[in-house]
């Protein structure tokens, strides 16, 4: 009888463990996946950052680990809106770097962060596939119905910026698709499925020459501010603030500007 009981207990434990994983480990004894494990010397900082920061922040994370021996920086890159939702729903993040003030506002409105600082800005460019098959030179070429254009959906920051830029230019552009994020938009250009798209300068640079970027003056009307903030309930405590400091430092600026961002 007792053997049967113990078998049940094992099975139940397994099920609970599974349930625990989906519930982000709340109320569970500290296990390896928990970001807050300050008992030993090892410390972790969990940074939620916009997908467009993937390259630069990974580099800065290494620099942070080098400067603070014994610490590990873990990243969760994704759509800013999704990240903001995750933080509001209680995800254990220390730092949030968003691609738009609006998504940061979701988090500050919830009282989870205060006084975000703008650390970089990003400007739109026209991206065209190698060879520029449709001969796009300036923004008004995008209004030509023969030119297939991809834009980000207006719900995501790059889409909102595109709407602003096109409005500023007084252009009516009918895209063939409204992509869910800037990477997906860029992919359509890279594969030559569209003749042009509006994406960030940083994305053009990150594509490594697969697409060509064309700067246009109206982009100045739609510059995107990137705010960053240490979260109020950061499990990593003051390490969170130190990571933000690194991003705002000259060292941070150098890395970001090299990738195509602009200083605020």
């Amino acid at each position: 009888m007792s053997r049967r009981l113990s078998r049940w207990a094992t099975a139940l434990a397994a099920v609970l463990a599974l349930a625990g994983v989906t519930a982000c480990g709340s109320g569970r004894p500290a296990a390896s996946a928990s970001p807050s494990a300050p008992a030993s010397g090892a410390k972790e900082v969990t940074v939620f950052a916009a997908a467009s920061l993937t390259g630069t922040f990974t580099e800065l994370g290494k620099a942070f680990e080098a400067a603070n021996p014994g610490t590990t920086v873990r990243f969760n890159f994704g759509s800013s809106a999704t990240l903001a939702q995750q933080i509001v729903q209680g995800a254990p993040a220390d730092v949030f770097a968003a691609a738009s003030p609006a998504t940061m506002k979701t988090v500050t409105d919830a009282g989870l962060a205060s006084a975000p600082a703008t650390f970089v800005r990003n400007r739109l460019q026209i991206a065209v596939p190698a060879g520029n098959p449709a001969g796009v030179d300036e923004l008004k070429d995008l209004a030509d119905p023969k030119v297939k254009v991809a834009l980000c959906a207006p719900q995501v920051p790059c889409g909102a910026a595109a709407v602003k830029a096109l409005e500023a230019a007084g252009l009516k552009v009918t895209p063939v698709t409204l992509e869910q994020d800037v990477k997906a938009t860029l992919t359509k250009v890279e594969l030559g499925e569209v003749d042009a798209a509006l994406v960030y300068t940083t994305d053009v640079i990150a594509s490594g020459g697969e697409v060509r970027g064309i700067a246009f003056p109206e982009a100045g009307q739609a510059v995107n501010d990137y705010p960053i903030a240490a979260l109020a309930k950061a499990p990593a405590g003051d390490l969170a603030g130190r990571f933000v400091d690194l991003v705002l430092s000259q060292r941070g600026k150098d890395v970001l500007i090299k990738a195509g961002f602009e200083a605020p």
Partner: peptide, 19 residues
């Protein structure tokens, strides 16, 4: 892709609304 009326199905609309 995602364009209302031609290619935006419900799951796509849901995903973007989530943003």
């Amino acid at each position: 892709g995602n364009f209302p009326g031609t290619t935006q199905t419900m799951p796509l609309a849901v995903y973007l609304a989530l943003e």
